[in-house]
Design a protein around this nucleic acid. Structure first.
Length: 293
DNA sequence: AACGTAGCCAACCGCAAAACT
DNA sequence: TAGTTTTGCGGTTGGCTACGT
């Protein structure tokens, strides 16, 4: 498939952005909005390629970016999400408001990777120059070309590339009246998670490819987990289980089919009020599970 | 003070999928 | 439907800084 470079590289600025360039880009985007990155530099009068402008805006200039130290809670969330999602930084960043995928990726590679590494597999600390260790990272660890930690921490392979599933076919019985049966974002409300689980058994999904199908089949426990956990946590010991009346499961197709449970904790268990403050402690039931992939 | 090394992070690169024609 | 363009993503690089010798 032919593909032209995003822009001619001749005569373009590279490297660090100047404050003037930042101002120009910010002003242009405020006036015209995001998008059309390819033409943006020319229209804005910047000697940069569109990709560079996009990156600068997304990772640095956006007004909603939260800068500064990553809190302990954020750290824990990153670790847990990485355990779940692998190196799908954009997806992880999507759950950390104000943080960018690049920032999280950098933070992981520089700070968190060693923490997530199982103790038993930690390399001996700085054999050659113990005194030179700067605490943050073992000296024996290469800067950028480590084998993916995911391989060491993931019980099973994780797709490192995000993929999109654009079509999900939901049986009519699952949808409220007048609901479109072919939808990009379908919310299923159920007063009873067990019924909800059974409904998933009948859920027809347009996987799009065999790999995804296989993955989904393999990850079937992923769906069941949330339900089981809810059931366990609400069992009154007499065989009766109570559930909220608004158990909600949202498919996030851009994250692949192993996402409903993630969304579960967001919609069902972890978000409170309009500001949707995340109760990190409530994630533990999901992420500390032995059966978690 | 000079040098070497490691850590941090902004920016770049190439690829793949989505969107468009 | 096929070809092309645009967008978004993850991996990688390289400059700057802090620290140790």
């Amino acid at each position: 498939m032919g593909r032209s470079p995003c822009c001619s590289k001749e005569g373009l600025n590279r490297g660090a952005w100047t404050s003037l360039e930042d101002k120009i880009l910010t002003a242009y985007i405020k006036a015209h909005g995001e998008g059309k990155w390819r033409n943006l530099p020319k229209r804005a009068g910047l000697k940069r390629c569109g990709k560079s402008c996009r990156l600068r805006w997304l990772n640095y200039l956006r007004p909603d970016i939260k800068r500064g130290n990553i809190s302990h809670d954020e750290e824990e969330l990153i670790i847990r999400l990485h355990k779940l999602l692998g190196n799908r930084w954009s997806l992880i960043a999507g759950r950390l408001p104000g943080r960018t995928d690049n920032e999280i990726k950098n933070y992981w590679n520089t700070t968190l990777r060693k923490r997530a590494r199982p103790q038993s597999s930690l390399p001996p600390s700085n054999k050659s120059h113990p005194s030179k260790s700067r605490v943050k990272r073992p000296a024996t660890e290469s800067k950028t070309t480590d084998p993916p930690l995911a391989a060491a921490t993931q019980p099973q392979p994780i797709r490192t590339k995000a993929f999109k599933c654009t079509k999900v076919l939901v049986p009519a019985a699952l949808l409220p009246p007048n609901e479109n049966h072919l939808t990009d974002s379908t919310t299923i409300n159920s007063a009873h998670p067990q019924a909800h689980q059974n409904r998933f058994d009948n859920l027809k999904v347009d996987y799009g490819n065999e790999e995804l199908h296989a993955t989904f089949s393999r990850d079937a426990n992923f769906y069941h987990f949330g339900c089981d956990e809810v059931q366990a946590s609400n069992d009154d010991g007499k065989g009766n289980c109570s559930y909220g009346n608004n158990f909600s499961m949202v498919f996030d197709h851009s994250m692949g089919l192993d996402e409903p449970t993630l969304e579960d904790w967001a919609t069902y268990n972890c978000l409170e009020g309009d500001n949707a403050t995340i109760d990190l402690g409530s994630l533990a039931f999901l992420l500390d599970s032995e059966g978690w992939p």
